[in-house]
Design a protein around this nucleic acid. Sequence first.
DNA 1: CATGAATGAGTGTTCATTCAT
DNA 2: AATGAATGAACACTCATTCAT
Lengths: 221, 221, 221, 221
Amino acid sequence: MTPTAESTGGADADAPTAVDGRGLRRQGLRTRSRLLDAGAAVLAERGYHSARVDDIVRVAQTSHGTFYLYFADKEDLLRALVARCSEELTALATSLGQVGAGPEGEAALREWLGLFLEAYRRNQPVIRAWAEDQPGDPELAGLAAEAFGEVSAALRTRLTESGAGQDGRPKAPVSAVALLAMVERFAYFRTSRDLEPDDEAALDSLARVIHRGFFAGTLAS
Amino acid sequence: MTPTAESTGGADADAPTAVDGRGLRRQGLRTRSRLLDAGAAVLAERGYHSARVDDIVRVAQTSHGTFYLYFADKEDLLRALVARCSEELTALATSLGQVGAGPEGEAALREWLGLFLEAYRRNQPVIRAWAEDQPGDPELAGLAAEAFGEVSAALRTRLTESGAGQDGRPKAPVSAVALLAMVERFAYFRTSRDLEPDDEAALDSLARVIHRGFFAGTLAS
Amino acid sequence: MTPTAESTGGADADAPTAVDGRGLRRQGLRTRSRLLDAGAAVLAERGYHSARVDDIVRVAQTSHGTFYLYFADKEDLLRALVARCSEELTALATSLGQVGAGPEGEAALREWLGLFLEAYRRNQPVIRAWAEDQPGDPELAGLAAEAFGEVSAALRTRLTESGAGQDGRPKAPVSAVALLAMVERFAYFRTSRDLEPDDEAALDSLARVIHRGFFAGTLAS
Amino acid sequence: MTPTAESTGGADADAPTAVDGRGLRRQGLRTRSRLLDAGAAVLAERGYHSARVDDIVRVAQTSHGTFYLYFADKEDLLRALVARCSEELTALATSLGQVGAGPEGEAALREWLGLFLEAYRRNQPVIRAWAEDQPGDPELAGLAAEAFGEVSAALRTRLTESGAGQDGRPKAPVSAVALLAMVERFAYFRTSRDLEPDDEAALDSLARVIHRGFFAGTLAS
DNA sequence: CATGAATGAGTGTTCATTCAT
DNA sequence: AATGAATGAACACTCATTCAT
């Protein structure tokens, strides 16, 4: 993931908008950050398409004009939020260490799952908006593809280490995607439906399912 | 699924719109069906929010006025498509029979997965639109919750039969959600990213992962 | 001047806007024409940039939406008016017959000048707007270049017939431009400054100046 | 040119803006001059309405705040440029000496035309902007009327000297306007269209046309 | 003298929905 | 049963101008 969060990348070179936080004084940085937070908040309760620049501005206690001083677009704000979120999630993905076949492997997995689910919950509004606007903004689609690639690559590594593809066990590439699918969607279901009051138990079970399915050794007959 | 598919409001009792296909002559049915197909097509390439009634009408080769003769709303059209899709998917979910711990269980699973993935691919545009518009339309959210409930219940049944929750194996409710999450998202990834040229092999691996993780018996030490 | 009055000529092929009057029923044609008239009126008193779509719509007694049913743009309306005007002026330019060296030539010239000045006065608001928006709209600039070319070509023909370039008389191409310049700007000054209450006398003098300068034979020593 | 160059309003008496360059220290003068140049440059490539204060400020390498330290308005900057330009052009107009009926008259005319065309070319951006904004700013309109008046008066003098109005030759007032029209518009066409690669020859022809039409004596039958 | 930040009224444009025929 | 035309509330975005430092 490159640090460039520029717009579509064409003739925006001379755009007056400071796309990133660079080149801003203290006050400017504070305002920009207030707008980002406000954006996240409004996104959370209305979704991307229904989020009005007006709402964001009201929450951030600024003016319409100020918004466009810091972001080229409504989409540009989303992109900034998405970049933040994408970085956090890929960092998390690569933070998963080797997962052993035994109980200590399951414990490590469980801990990591807890972190992931928590991060997902925190970022869900942005993720939802991200998905919502993908068809309309190729750049968002690109970020998504990139994040998907990085995360699944990290998982593939872990799976290969654990012997995926050997002894009749499932192939690593497919497994990585399946694992990512499961974790991501489970996190989504958990946050959006009102599931599982008992988080700890749910985590236990999920960790076990995943460990058994993806990381454990051969099965007994 | 309740028979009321009308808007959330109340005064629609005497609306001229036939919510379902009932009470229409041959020509009317054909027009309505043309609109549904056009809707699905437009949804497929633009997503719900970017889909214009104008586009749908143009593809269906009708007029704006005609559209509102058959549907109360743009949302109403989506609801009709969603209902169709929801029925197909829940039917599919309940069609999964008992899954044994042995190879024949894996084979049955594999076959069912093939059907599911295929159905998902066919319905993806509608599913995407469905998700996109959920926050704005409580009725769609309700349909989603309902479908989610039915499908996960069906899976719970199969998992319980297979001994979930016993001998240190993961609990059925969580497992059902995890399984659904994995299947649904895997299908999504497969269709939206350009994954896996070799479908058959991918299916093999996926079936194996799931069988091992959710349905197989105790593990070897 | 081709009859195509389409937009910039790119991907507008499937635009929903009926760019020309074609394919409209009676009512549609009437509305479109009302908008054109209103546009001309508003342009007349405010100029292009200060003309608000809102004003045009109010004068035409229609709604905002209707405006965009018939024109893609504010610019598009201007283009339609300009096309009309451009046609009228070039037609007028080519309507000038051979101009003899004697008094009957001057009389013919005088008559034509009267027509031109009148047409110019009638079209001045559009011409002003045309000039105003040229830098911003290449298509308008193109129309202008085209009209300029046609008119000066017509004048060149007349001048060549009259012996321009012979006997130490000025060359036809430059003369044509000079003549056009003079007529056009004279018309402009006359309409925008409050000149010459005595129109007939002014016409006499102008015709004589032009006849002497451009069409008359050799000078006395 | 009256000394009031202030806005149309009245309460500007204590405005901090030095309307002219007076009362500024060296650095101030330099900044003001940088802004004027930048203004001319931006006007040249975008026209008045599309010229953004932002652009001017960027080209001048200053800030928004500074701009309003030296000019009350965007219009105020234009007025300053226009005043400069107007002075140059009227000076030029009055610099035309008597034009004799013979070849030496034509030569004098030719030289003056060269100067005028060159000055016009140099000032064209400002002239264009001037014309563009006239309807919106009465003061600019006033300056224009004034300049028009002075220039046409000067020409009238020359024409009267040369016997305009006598012997069936056109009347001086109309001729003066016609002459001004022709020169001004010719200059415009030459600069804005890409005309006449051969400037010298064009000048010859133009001078001859004008001399014949306006200054030469009686014509041969 | 200079500046970065803030402002908000104003404008073009879209699009779901309704209506007259 | 069908349709072309009309509608207008809603929204994103711009930019000249002011202000605090």
